[in-house]
């Protein structure tokens, strides 16, 4: 049975699964951050944690699925393309509920992602390519996606705004 931890007072109050491969877990206010190994297990956990955080932030099922998928794609990008499964390189993930949005940052220690070099996966000549859809899916499913070069690595910030009741009524019109 996996261990678990609960965020402290003032945090989002979500329960997170904790497995042996977590190097660190930090909670500060409404922010939770992890440092993880560059493995597929870390990808799966990032996805599961995103779903939990999105649920706690009040997102409906469809948005929760979209957020967790965007996080999965970003984590895959970091583990596979960034850190190339290198056991000496880590994956850093943070989740922050600002009250207005869920802000997720995923950073690797790889050579650095050149977003401008990634071809449009919807272009007819790229439709049958096996890869290249991850960042497109992140942009489709989130309200904002930002990229920042690190030394070394890349940080991807995924933002999904929390819609209040007034927003939902306006959208329904």
């Amino acid at each position: 049975m996996p261990l678990s931890a609960t965020c402290g007072e003032g945090a989002v109050g979500a329960r997170f699964p904790l497995f042996g491969w977590y190097d660190t877990l930090k909670t500060t206010g409404n922010r939770v951050s992890y440092t993880l190994d560059s493995t597929l297990d870390s990808v799966n956990t990032a996805e599961e944690t995103a779903a939990q955080m999105a649920g706690k932030a009040g997102f409906a099922d469809e948005d929760r699925d979209r957020i967790s998928m965007a996080v999965r794609e970003a984590a895959v990008n970091a583990v596979l393309h960034g850190n190339t499964y290198d056991p000496t390189k880590k994956l850093r993930i943070s989740f922050e509920n600002t009250g207005e949005a869920l802000v997720i940052k995923i950073a690797d220690e790889g050579a650095g992602l050149k977003v401008e070099d990634i071809p449009d996966p919807l272009a007819p000549e790229n439709l049958l390519k096996q890869s290249g859809r991850g960042i497109f899916l992140m942009r489709t499913f989130m309200d904002d996606v930002q990229f920042r070069r690190l030394q070394p690595g890349t940080e991807i910030t995924l933002i999904k705004h929390v819609r209040n009741d007034a927003d939902r009524i306006e959208e329904a019109k």
Partner: peptide, 14 residues
């Protein structure tokens, strides 16, 4: 299905 799975479906198709 994630983007890798989509890629695998495309690869199988081609």
């Amino acid at each position: 299905i994630d983007s890798s799975g989509i890629g695998e479906l495309v690869s199988a198709f081609t």
